[in-house]
């Protein structure tokens, strides 16, 4: 469901690296606002769920009555969501582990799948879906364990999807907000993000598909 309003961008700022996302949008000339309450969601067309601790972010979303409101607004086609790391975990489906997920993105992410901080890393990786290369920083990162037909993989590290799109949804297991180049944030703001995804492919924009759009098990 496309949303043709001018973008009003928010970054969830209850817990997590929200400042880095605000800075990334600033580089694009977009003034994003910090969101901490239901009132903060008014008028928003785009919301970022930042990296942080997914258990803490879930706890605070429930505490301040924001979780269902975000899900409802997204399902009504009024709020595009971009999750990085912890935020990406929340967008996906439940895997039986805490915290409970939104179940919006047709993918399941496993927390801390690489291990502890000592296993965190960064490397330059191509993002074929966006046509760029980016220094990708993975911090106690999750792994995408399953991708369903309503999700499209935009980039991988080896066999692991690291950037996944669904209708009105974008999820990164790494931290685009810590990279110099705000291209992933720019991609999030494109109206075409609401394009339907069928069989792992974005229907409305065949020309922008990455080569490995059907990765998943």
């Amino acid at each position: 469901m496309p949303d043709d309003r001018a973008p009003v961008v928010g970054v969830l700022a209850l817990q997590g690296a929200s400042t880095a996302h605000l800075t990334a949008f600033e580089k694009l000339g977009v003034k994003a606002r910090s969101v901490r309450s239901r009132e903060g969601l008014e008028e928003l067309t785009h919301l970022v769920l930042p990296g942080g601790e997914s258990t803490t972010i879930h706890h605070l979303l429930e505490l301040f009555d924001l979780r269902q409101e975000i899900i409802d607004r997204h399902q009504a086609g009024r709020l595009a969501l971009f999750g990085t790391c912890a935020g990406a975990i929340l967008l996906g489906g439940d895997d039986g582990q805490a915290p409970p997920r939104f179940g919006l993105l047709d993918a399941v992410l496993e927390r801390n799948a690489y291990g502890r901080q000592i296993d965190s890393f960064s490397r330059v990786l191509p993002l074929p879906g966006l046509g760029i290369e980016l220094r990708c920083v993975f911090i106690r990162a999750p792994k995408v364990r399953r991708v369903g037909p309503r999700a499209c993989v935009l980039a991988c590290d080896g066999d692991d999807p690291i950037l996944v799109q669904g209708p009105g949804l974008l999820a990164a297991t790494f931290h685009p907000e810590l990279a110099e180049d705000p291209m992933v944030h720019s991609y999030f703001l494109r109206p075409a993000l609401w394009g339907e995804v069928r069989d792992g492919s974005i229907e409305k924009e065949p020309s922008e598909l990455g080569p490995q759009a059907a990765v998943g098990t």
Binding site: Q15, G16, A17, S18, A86, I139
Partner: peptide, 14 residues
Amino acid sequence: FEIKVGLARMLQGG
């Protein structure tokens, strides 16, 4: 150093 500071940034607001 970026990876180390990265984890510190993820703790923001906590």
